[in-house]
Amino acid sequence: MNRIISKSRLSDNVYKMQLEAPLVAQERKAGQFVILMVDDELGERIPLTIADADAEKGTITVIFQTVGATTTKLSRLEPGDSIAALLGPLGRPTSIRGENGEKPGHVVCVGGGIGVAPMHPIAQALKAAGNKVTIIMGARNEGLFVMKDEMAAIAGENLILMTDDGSSGRKGLVTEPLKELCEAGAVDEVIAIGPPIMMKFCALATKPYGVKTTVSLNTIMIDGTGMCGGCRVSVGGKTKFVCVDGPEFDGHEVDWDQMLSRMGAFKPQEQAAKEHVCKAGIFK
């Protein structure tokens, strides 16, 4: 169960894994995620977006960045190994323009860093539903881009690359071209996925133009089924559970400062856990 079929390293600390999960592969839709555990005795449950799936082969793809103990342990596993626990698909699927009653139009997808991975199935679905899809990808430098070719295949000439240091594409933040596109007036919808701070500024950028902006929140989770409330955020003044009400929400309504603060709740202990993994010699 949950065997790792293949593994590759996309950049310094980003890995791609294909996992055997036939039922998840069959049921999943763009925007949904899984929760997995590397060790089901003492391990942690972490959410990862389903970046791609092959229902026929019965596999799903996850792309993850090693940020702490669990993602680091995951990155140490090899093809043939099994993931101790894998649950999904969780969360509500993305509402795809053109499939949800609204007419297809021009949708701008903004992916920051690893956020490009979860964007991929969404961009694919948007394209398939007849939308014009523009993709803005941002990273600190050229080496940190993931899935550039896959995104180029969807957006064609409407792919905009942004780097902090100008090592590839334009130098600057993803919010710059986003503002320009909104200013030009031809944007019907924006979807932004990436670090919370990036999503916050994307939402701020589009707000003056009144362009609908969907974001995918990556709060801390435990069960992923609505049982614990650990993933809660305020959206439009109401408390929502990201795992069952989301992960996608209207970016103009999210209380970003609260969300950012809640994500840091366990920082000192996460650091300690990571060091523990270090000491145990698991970090290579």
Binding site: L23, V24, E27, A85, L86, L87, G88, P89, L90, T225
Partner: peptide, 8 residues
């Protein structure tokens, strides 16, 4: 690790 309503 099987959630009815989601996995099936």
């Amino acid at each position: 690790n099987f959630v009815i309503g989601r996995t099936r």
